[in-house]
């Protein structure tokens, strides 16, 4: 799924410019890091892609569809094709690890047997099978992050959005998470990930988009954290 930002600005009330005149194009199958300081607009950019936000100016198009023109009733169908790992995990507190992951498939009326198979597979993929009956509050930050990743993987999305997915993880766990993301990307899934983690960016040498004060200041293929 390709992503296109054309002259996009996002201004929050009363007059806070989170993004200013962003132009970028991400092709299907790319792996892109969004970097920048806190408040530089990284999360806003990702939330525009997931259509949690609408641009104040310009056009955000995902898979050729203008996010402003998409019908409200079609949004859930769009989001089923987008795996999202949010900064604050966004896990349903009353559900167990297993139920949180199964939910995204159940919402699509996937038969129970398939749900069970797929859920088991993705939980194993993030190494949490033994924690499957626990609720998010009983897990560490890193474990919750992995549950969020497993949930995002459950629907085999063609676009994976991750907002600082390694932010709460130690080096070893972060490396494991990155391995999963690289594997997803290797399968042809577009991955857009915001991060502060310099070593991850520097070691993998993928496309880097840097934001400063809501402006795109660098878009470099095979880039590092600091230009």
């Amino acid at each position: 799924m390709n992503i296109n930002f054309s002259g996009v600005s996002k201004i929050f009330e009363p007059d806070i410019a989170a993004l200013v005149d962003i132009n970028l194009n991400i092709e299907q199958g790319e792996f892109v890091y969004i970097i920048g300081q806190t408040g530089s607009g990284k999360s806003t950019l990702l939330r525009l892609i997931t259509r949690e936000l609408l641009p104040s100016r310009g056009v955000v198009a995902v898979g050729g569809v203008d996010m402003r023109k998409i019908n409200t009733s079609d949004i859930p169908y769009y989001r089923r094709d987008v795996g999202l790992v949010a900064q604050d995990f966004r896990l349903i507190p009353s559900l167990t690890v297993y139920e949180n992951i199964a939910f995204v498939m159940e919402a699509m009326s996937v038969p129970k047997k398939l749900v069970a198979e797929r859920t088991r597979a993705v939980i194993n993929q993030v190494g949490l099978w033994r924690r499957r009956t626990m609720r998010p509050s009983q897990l560490s930050g890193g474990e919750q992050q992995r549950v969020a990743i497993a949930r995002a993987l459950a629907n085999s999305p063609s676009l994976f959005i991750a907002d600082e997915p390694t932010g709460n993880l130690d080096f070893t766990t972060a490396s494991e998470v990155m391995k999963i993301l690289f594997a997803i990307n290797a399968a042809g899934v577009t991955v857009v990930m915001s991060t502060h983690n310099q070593s991850i960016v520097n070691s993998s040498r993928r496309r880097v988009i840097e934001l400063v004060g809501g402006r795109l200041v660098r878009d470099e293929k095979g880039g590092t954290y600091v230009s």
């Binding site: 009733s73 949004i75 859930p76 009353s94 995204v104």
Partner: peptide, 11 residues
């Protein structure tokens, strides 16, 4: 909870 459900693709 309702917000998360909507975010992950529930109608």
């Amino acid at each position: 909870e309702i917000g998360i459900m909507y975010l992950v693709g529930a109608t």
